[in-house]
Amino acid sequence: MPITDNLHYFESQLQGTPARLVAVTKTHPLALLQEAYDAGARLFGENKVQEMVAKQPELPADVEWHLIGHLQTNKVKYIAPFVHTIQSVDSLKLLQEIEKQAAKHDRVVHCLLQFHIATEETKFGLSLPEAEEILQSEAYRAMRHIQIAGVMGVGTNTDDEPQLRREFGELRGYFTHLQTHYFAQQPTFREISMGMSADYAVAIEEGSTLIRVGSAIFGARNYQVS
Rank of each mutant, 00 (worst) to 15 (best):
P2R: 01
I3M: 09
L7N: 12
Y9W: 14
E11F: 15
Q13I: 03
G16S: 09
G16M: 12
P18W: 01
R20W: 00
A23M: 12
A23N: 09
K26C: 03
H28D: 00
L30Q: 14
L32K: 15
Q34H: 12
E35C: 03
E35G: 09
A36E: 09
Y37V: 08
G40T: 09
A41L: 04
R42W: 02
R42K: 14
L43Q: 13
G45W: 08
K48I: 00
V49L: 10
V49F: 10
M52S: 02
V53I: 12
P57F: 13
L59P: 13
L59K: 13
V63H: 04
E64C: 06
E64T: 08
L67T: 00
I68C: 02
G69N: 01
H70G: 01
L71S: 04
L71F: 04
T73F: 01
N74S: 08
K77W: 06
K77Y: 12
P81A: 10
V83C: 10
H84E: 14
H84M: 05
T85I: 13
I86R: 02
V89K: 00
L92N: 05
L94Y: 07
L94S: 12
Q96I: 00
I98F: 08
Q101A: 04
K104D: 06
K104S: 07
R107Y: 05
V109G: 03
L112H: 03
F115H: 06
A118R: 02
A118V: 04
T122E: 14
T122F: 00
K123N: 08
F124L: 02
G125K: 09
E130C: 02
A131I: 04
A131E: 12
E133I: 00
L135A: 06
L135P: 11
Y140K: 04
M143S: 07
R144F: 00
I146M: 00
A149M: 14
A149R: 15
A149Q: 14
G150E: 06
G153T: 03
G155P: 04
G155S: 12
T156E: 08
T156G: 11
N157R: 06
T158W: 06
D159Y: 05
D159C: 01
D160N: 15
E161Y: 01
R165W: 09
R166W: 02
F168C: 13
G169F: 11
Y174I: 11
L178H: 01
L178G: 02
H181W: 05
Y182K: 05
F183T: 05
Q185C: 00
Q185M: 02
S193Q: 05
G195S: 10
G195I: 08
A198E: 14
D199Q: 10
V202C: 14
V202R: 03
I204K: 13
G207Q: 07
I211Y: 11
V213D: 09
G214S: 11
G214L: 07
G214W: 08
G214N: 08
A216S: 15
I217Y: 10
F218C: 01
A220T: 14
A220F: 00
A220V: 11
Q224W: 01
